[in-house]
Computed example of a mutant assay.
Amino acid sequence: MRAVSIGTFGSPDGMEVVDVPVPSPSAGEVVIRTAAIGVGGVDAVIRRGTLGALGPAMSRDGLVPGSEVAGTITAVGAGVEASWLNRRVWAFTGVSGGYAEQAVARIENVTALPAGLTPVDAVTLGSAAPVAHFALQRAHFAKDETVLVRGAAGSIGIAAVESAARAGARAVAVTTSSAERGERLMEYGATHVLDRDGNSTRAPEPGDFDVIVDIVAGPALPSFLARLAPNGRLVLVGLVAGPPPADFGSALLGRFRQSVSVATFSLDTVPRADLARVRADQFETAARGDLSAVVHAVLPLEAAADAHRRMDAGEVFGRIVLTP
């Protein structure tokens, strides 16, 4: 079967389509014939070789990236009910292995797709929407609070904007790279648009924030701690711009008397049953048209390097999806 391999870490040019053996499921696993493959920010971090201490060693030659797929189950391993065969599903493949015509996943990381939800929409929402949901929960977000979503033009950011707006936020501000993107984000519930440095691009100023959902991190993270209101909470869910500076704790201590806090969040810490329930509910909501799956482009598998170039250039609004 065909798969995308990282022959050389760093530039997208190091990615290539290769022939690899068709996988077989071990106990507790299923094989999925992929119809759609999500291209996410973590894939780019892995491809650059910069995952570092934030994850397992992901720099072995020939690594097949990709963490989420949707398609049809074609084989089941020992301990998996045969009724899963031929079912349409979304699956988390475990950080790697998704950029392929067939992929393996643990059955506990598989969610059945409801009628009316396409595989493309499933991989657009399958990881992003739960991250947004649980990040707001981790931040103890409450109705009538103000929220800033930093780096809002990706699939996680859009889901966070829409979720906060629908949950009754008094204001939902976003940082993004252009006025055009800001206008699009307002269609999903944003009320204020800021530039990447956190400056307002239009009046009125949004003020400080009760909650910041940060997908970017990077060198500028300390400046956003200054935008937290007293008792404000920043939840870091991504590292699009790399890790924050080593001394960012100094900025946090500088706000000591305002009782602000910073937390990291990963879906790995959510109990599997809770995560599966929320994802299934979100899929049903999307199938009814009440949750938006924003797809930037659908590209063939062999265009994976081009998809990564677009991400690196900051061109993507929503998610790029690959199809075999």
Rank of each mutant, 00 (worst) to 15 (best):
M1Y: 07
A3P: 05
S5M: 08
S5P: 05
S5H: 08
I6R: 01
G7L: 14
P12C: 14
V22D: 14
P23Q: 06
V30R: 03
G38L: 07
G38Q: 09
V45T: 15
G52E: 05
L54D: 00
G55A: 10
P56M: 13
G66L: 12
V89L: 09
V89A: 04
R106K: 15
A112L: 14
A115C: 06
A122M: 12
L136E: 04
F141Q: 03
E145Y: 04
V147K: 01
G151P: 02
A153Y: 01
S163L: 14
A165M: 03
R170P: 03
S177D: 02
S178V: 11
A179C: 01
R181G: 00
G182P: 05
E183Y: 00
A190H: 01
T191S: 15
H192F: 03
H192D: 02
E205P: 04
G207Y: 09
F209L: 01
V213P: 00
D214F: 06
D214W: 07
L228Y: 05
A229R: 14
A229P: 01
A241Y: 07
D247T: 12
S261M: 10
S266L: 14
T269S: 13
A276I: 06
E284P: 00
G289I: 03
S292V: 03
A297D: 15
L299R: 15
A307I: 06
G314T: 12
G314V: 12
V316P: 13
V321K: 01
